[in-house]
Design a protein around this nucleic acid. Structure first.
Lengths: 340, 340
DNA sequence: CTGAAAGCGCTTACAG
DNA sequence: CTGAAAGCGCTTACAG
């Protein structure tokens, strides 16, 4: 079997110039008309030869190849957090397929942590028409470089770096978290504690902000509401809270879910929600009974793709689009009236 | 921010030709020597200008871009079968990253089922240095076309199409399935039934072959051992088998896991393994207690990547490598002595 | 030791 | 209505 046919082969077969073949095949007839007969001959020759345009050459010549990149600053398929990322990736793939875009997963060359400042890896994303970025932090220099070059990109997750010039699709954790606190307050709780991770990601501080805002507006004792803790400290905390007469604990759900797991493990003996109400800011795996909210992860992926493709196809430079998606409240059964 | 610097810019800055820049940067010094001073000047200029090679141009000129494709004949992130594909993809990504390869996910343009004969989509894979293929069947024409063109590809899963010319990394379902039957026989079972899906994939018939071979060598009544069934029919089957004095049921685990789920659901009332022993040819989600075997899915992905990269980097044309991986036996607790 | 030239397969002005 | 030419940013013979 021979080498893949190119436009020149079709041109020879159809007795026209390579330019004409390109014109016919790309459908770029800006003002120019091609005779119907030429057109048909070219198309037939292309069909016969089994022509497929070389996407690399296309991209080099025209800066469009219908491929969008996905760049994650850690493994795209991390073992520990399957359920966290998988729906996002599924959403990305779904929408990409719907829009006729292939996906390039940039896996980076070095070890996992070396990736952040792997400038080369990030710049490599330019082989695609545009790129989706994932990750808790933004490597400002290379992203700035891409942005400055007019390269279309969209972050997954809210970002406030680079003076708000980064387009993103994020999640409105502030509103969703506030709603959970309000629900507890309405159920009569006053002694509430919020357990968050040590991590300083925006998704963490947004949740905390929502919690604090809601607590303030309900005139709760805001001072003591937030507790930062590593997993190992949770047991002691719960013990202490119990003695303080706390009636509800709200916990942050992180990508690994280890904090909520630690909380549930520390609960042994305590009846939920009779003695203690529990709410989770996010939805842990295999715990549909937990009250809290669901993160629209699949939609996050889908929406990000749409934003990116819009950016790629729109000719005019627009201000960076920044979208926040609403979470889905989960009623669950772990919020009750204040106990003991 | 200006346009990305290219080799010509470095050449100007360093006072050499663009060719020299290419030579220095690529390290392609076949027999030719470059003066150390030139070399240093070029590297410094490249560093200063923040040069990053354009991967598109590199690929067009050299036919190597350190990207490997992943082509699935269905969604790469199918919702229904998360746990089935995810480990394979995770393995692929892991190994690709280790070998410095980016991944291109070809998502196809049309609907999901239109993909198989989407010749264009398959040919598009040629943008990568090579491609991994997934899927229950082989679209022979385009695969033959790729193979004939010397395009490196590796299938995930055993394949026997195209006269054995398709390189693959598969799973030795025959041996693993036979081992399960042997285990039952050793436990004293004679009345065994094997429940398989209606699907005719090779992974199904391999399992059946293993079951039959083992049954024959144990001189079981092979005639009646295999039952093909849709999920809905399982309940009636189990009922009948119960009346026939069957003491062990072996079930195929498919990608969706629906058959084993149906079997477990049909079991209500029957005590396992006291009354009935159960074994699964594969490992259903969330059922570590089931006896059977684990498919080395992560390793499947990893190994496939290694095979592919070997193929890409080896200069000599070799016969297609076909690898079968062993499964991991799962002892479980659902096999006992024959009941009733 | 280094450079001028051709070529990878396309697209896009620009001429006719 | 169609073609010759230049160019996208590289690599790779081939000369010097």
């Amino acid at each position: 079997m021979a080498r893949a046919p190119r436009q020149a082969d079709i041109a020879a077969a159809a007795g026209v110039s390579q330019t004409t073949v390109s014109l016919v095949l790309s459908g770029n007839t800006d003002g120019m008309r091609l005779s119907e007969s030429t057109r048909r001959r070219v198309l037939k020759a292309a069909e016969t030869l089994g022509y497929v345009p070389d996407p690399v050459a296309t991209r080099l010549a025209s800066a469009r190849n219908h491929m969008i990149g996905v760049y994650t600053f850690a493994s795209a398929f991390p073992t520990a957090v399957d359920d966290f990322y998988y729906p996002i990736l599924a959403g990305i793939e779904e929408e990409a397929a719907a829009l006729g875009q292939d996906l390039i997963l940039f896996t980076g060359t070095g070890g996992l942590d070396a990736r952040a400042d792997d400038k080369t890896a990030i710049r490599r994303t330019r082989i695609a028409d545009g790129c989706l970025f994932f990750g808790r932090h933004v490597p400002e220099e290379p992203i700035d470089w891409l942005l400055g070059g007019g390269f279309p990109l969209v972050y997954i997750g809210r970002r406030d770096e680079l003076d708000g010039r980064i387009p993103f699709v994020g999640v409105d954790y502030v509103a969703a978290s506030a709603a959970v606190i309000h629900r507890l307050v309405e159920a009569g709780h006053r002694e509430i504690r919020y357990l968050r991770s040590m991590d300083d990601a925006l998704s963490s501080s947004d949740r905390e902000r929502g919690v604090l805002t809601a607590a303030e507006s309900a005139q709760l004792p805001v001072r003591r509401i937030v507790a930062r803790a590593a997993d190992a400290e949770v047991r002691d905390l719960v013990e202490r809270w119990r003695n303080e007469g706390v009636t509800a604990v709200v916990v942050e759900e992180t990508d690994t879910g280890s904090l909520s797991t630690a909380l549930l493990a520390a609960l042994n003996g305590i009846r939920v929600p009779d003695e203690l109400s529990i709410a989770v800011l996010g939805q842990p795996k295999n715990h549909p009974e937990l009250s809290g909210f669901d993160v629209p992860r699949r939609e996050l992926g889908r929406r990000a793709v749409r934003l990116l493709v819009n950016q790629i196809t729109s000719s005019t430079a627009r201000p960076p689009e920044q979208v926040l998606l609403d979470c889905i409240p989960v009623a669950g059964s772990t919020i009750g009236a204040p106990g003991w």
